[in-house]
């Protein structure tokens, strides 16, 4: 009898147990009778017929073909030369002023950008960009905390405030 015990003559189809959970869920999720198939949504008449034209209108237009200036070429060169000279002087004057940099952006504009953009930054993302050493408490808090408030908090939440005292040598 012992020899029969260790030999199982039955087999299962390939990957039967791997697929079992999925097949069970399929059976359990068979079409429910109480959920209607019609949702009640409808669309305006001929809506789909006009869709392509509406989308097409919003696509970037092709660049118009360049028409050769032909006999006007010499006038074109003269006009271009004058324009280049004028632009050169304007450019010299323009460059005399400071270039616009990051510092010129208003804080409110930067805040508005972060608020209105869908960047979905979470604390983990921020932590990956900014190292802990570079962070100051003021970077994450809009109102500053006074020393009195910190002491009051510690007083209320730490059993023995004296234990928190340390000398820099301890590090």
């Amino acid at each position: 009898m012992e020899e029969f015990k260790n030999k199982n003559p039955f087999k299962t189809p390939e990957r039967y147990f791997e697929n079992f959970n999925g097949q069970l869920l399929d059976k359990l999720s068979e079409e429910p009778s109480v959920v209607p198939k019609n949702e009640g949504f409808k669309v305006p008449e001929n809506y789909f017929d006009g869709l392509y034209a509406n989308v097409r209108q919003k696509l970037p237009r092709e660049q118009p073909k360049v028409i050769s200036l032909g006999s006007y070429r010499k006038y074109w060169y003269a006009a271009a030369s004058i324009a280049a000279i004028v632009l050169f002087f304007i450019g010299v004057k323009w460059n005399a002023t400071d270039e616009i940099g990051f510092d010129d952006l208003a804080i409110s504009d930067i805040e508005a950008y972060f608020n209105e953009s869908d960047m979905d930054l979470n604390t983990l993302d921020i932590a990956e960009i900014v190292s802990f050493e570079d962070l100051e408490i003021d970077d994450v808090m809009t109102t500053s905390i006074g020393e009195d408030q910190i002491l009051e908090y510690l007083d209320n939440h730490v059993d023995n405030i004296e234990e928190l005292r340390y000398d820099t040598d301890e590090y």
């Binding site: 959970n21 999925g22 869920l25 399929d26 359990l28 999720s29 429910p32 109480v34 959920v35």
Partner: peptide
Amino acid sequence: SVGALKASYHLAIKKIEAFLK
């Protein structure tokens, strides 16, 4: 994954049925 989708669908059906009942 297909397995996770089947589980999600099953849960969704059960919740909707319960809500409608």
